[in-house]
Computed example of a mutant assay.
Amino acid sequence: MSWLYLGIAVVFEVIVGISASRAQGFTKPWWTIGTLVSGAIATFFLGLALLTFDVGVGYAIWTSVAGVGIVVVGALFLDQKLGWRKGLGIAIVIGGVIGLQLSGAA
């Protein structure tokens, strides 16, 4: 169940990243509310996942996978460029997450 909680936390953290960029320095009220609400939901589910995961490993996986998700969503839907350097960075992050999992994280 902790993986499900972590997955939900990642999805809402991706929403945080996209909403925060759309909030334009928190000058757009609806995007600001979306940022805050999705951030609260992401944190809530991360907290549930951390009942099982080691805090360092769970938090690292959460932020890493969410960061990759934000880059991918930005490239697919927000006309942001995804060059080879970003692709290499994503590959390195994914390798790190796999390494954490192989360490016996949860």
Results as ranks from 00 to 15, higher is better:
W3E: 13
W3I: 04
L4C: 09
L4D: 03
Y5I: 03
Y5L: 01
Y5V: 08
L6A: 07
G7S: 10
G7P: 12
I8T: 07
A9G: 06
A9W: 09
V10S: 07
V10K: 13
F12T: 08
E13D: 13
V14W: 02
V16F: 05
V16W: 03
G17D: 03
G17N: 06
R22L: 15
R22D: 01
A23F: 02
A23T: 01
A23W: 05
F26G: 04
K28F: 10
K28D: 11
P29W: 14
P29C: 09
W30S: 05
W31T: 00
T32R: 04
T32I: 11
G34Y: 05
T35L: 08
L36F: 15
L36K: 09
V37G: 09
V37R: 06
V37A: 11
V37Q: 03
G39R: 10
A40V: 14
A40W: 04
I41M: 00
I41T: 08
I41P: 04
I41E: 08
A42D: 02
F44M: 09
G47S: 14
G47I: 00
L50P: 01
L51N: 09
L51P: 02
F53G: 01
D54H: 15
V55C: 02
G56I: 01
G56F: 09
G58Y: 06
A60H: 08
I61R: 03
I61S: 09
I61H: 11
W62Y: 11
W62E: 04
W62M: 10
W62L: 07
T63H: 08
S64D: 00
S64V: 04
S64A: 15
V65T: 14
V65K: 05
G67D: 00
G67P: 04
V68Y: 06
V68G: 10
V68S: 04
V68W: 12
V68K: 15
G69Y: 12
G69A: 10
G69D: 01
V73T: 14
A75W: 15
F77W: 14
L78N: 11
L78A: 07
D79A: 15
Q80A: 13
K81S: 14
L82D: 07
R85D: 06
G87Y: 10
I90T: 07
A91S: 12
V93H: 10
G99V: 00
G99I: 04
L100H: 11
L100I: 07
L102W: 13
L102D: 09
S103Y: 13
S103W: 15
G104A: 08
G104K: 12
G104H: 11
A106P: 02
